[in-house]
Amino acid sequence: MVSWAITGATRGIGLGFVDNLSIDPKNQVFAIIRSRATAGPLEKLASKRKNIQIVVTDISDPSRLAEAAADVSKITGGSLDVLILNAGSAGPETSVLPPTAFHGKEEALEKEINENVKNNLISNIFVINSFLDLIRNGKEKKVIFISSQSGDVEFTRVTGFATVLGYSVAKAGMNLVMSKFSAELAQEGIKTLSLSPGWVDTDAAKAVTGDPAVRKFVLSAFRKLDPNVNGPISVNESVTDQLQVIRSLTEANSGKFLSHHGNHDEWF
């Protein structure tokens, strides 16, 4: 049996991972969430599939994460094969602003950067360190960070995306952090990967690109990279592609930042 833990498993891509993985009874799936209050679809799925365990915690609180890791350890006998860091946040409303718009708005700039770094970078380091001993005892020994193409310099340069400043900075920073973990833990056989899910049809994506005018702008920008892109892909398609990349992860690719196609140029 392969054990998987997914943070941010209440909805969207996180829930997609839980759904896809739990189809196979040989997988033991831990859905790590912040609250059961908004976890209706996950609760319904877990009631049907006994290989899903829901773990409630706060990824910004190391003491609560230690408790969550202990809960997982009790079930697995002290190990975890794959940890998927999917939880994150798009940050404050200022995410729609480009860098120059923060001139004279220094407090807003600090909030834009700091909130995103806290939620999308520091909290993920907390999670990795809390579950690392379990990963050390696992068979697969894989730590996966669900990143974003917006954290890639070349993607930003070509598309001309000047907004989501803090989010992009935090994702890019966490990509580097994953490489640091890879460098440190390689001798233990632990492999890491930053993985872009693509442009995915989630509620979070709709909140950003749902407006017709915004969608038109986004499509125009994305087509500078890929003239054939017409819209977001489904959660299931994204998760299926990502799992193929995760399962094929070797020491040779550890620490890299890849797309859901397993390369560094097909972002859609």
Rank of each mutant, 00 (worst) to 15 (best):
K105V: 05
N137S: 15
E106A: 11
S150R: 02
K74R: 10
S95M: 11
S123V: 06
K142N: 01
I113C: 06
E115I: 09
K142Y: 04
S60M: 01
S79E: 14
E67W: 03
K171C: 03
P92L: 01
V177H: 10
V96T: 15
F161W: 02
S123N: 06
F102K: 14
A70Y: 00
Q149M: 13
E67R: 14
K139N: 15
S95W: 11
A186C: 00
A108C: 04
S148M: 10
K111I: 01
R157I: 03
G104H: 09
L83S: 14
L176W: 14
G88T: 14
I146Y: 08
V169C: 08
V153N: 12
V72R: 09
V96S: 07
E110I: 08
S150L: 10
D152L: 10
D133N: 14
L109S: 12
E188K: 07
G160W: 00
G138L: 05
S148H: 09
F102N: 10
L195S: 08
L132F: 13
F155T: 11
S123C: 13
S196H: 14
G104S: 05
E115A: 01
N119D: 05
T94Y: 03
L109P: 10
G91F: 03
S182G: 00
L195T: 03
S196M: 02
R136H: 09
L193V: 09
K171G: 02
L65E: 15
D61R: 00
L195Q: 11
G173P: 11
P62F: 07
V82R: 11
F145M: 04
E115Y: 09
S182I: 12
V143M: 07
N119H: 06
I146S: 03
G77P: 15
A108E: 13
V143A: 04
S147L: 02
K191F: 08
I75H: 12
L109N: 08
L165F: 13
F181H: 04
L83G: 08
A90L: 14
N137T: 12
D133E: 15
K142I: 04
K142S: 07
T76E: 13
P62C: 07
G160E: 05
S79H: 11
L134Q: 10
P62L: 00
T159Q: 09
D61K: 01
V169R: 00
G91H: 01
S73M: 03
T192F: 02
G138Y: 11
V72C: 07
D81W: 01
L165D: 15
A162M: 08
N114Q: 05
K111M: 13
I59C: 05
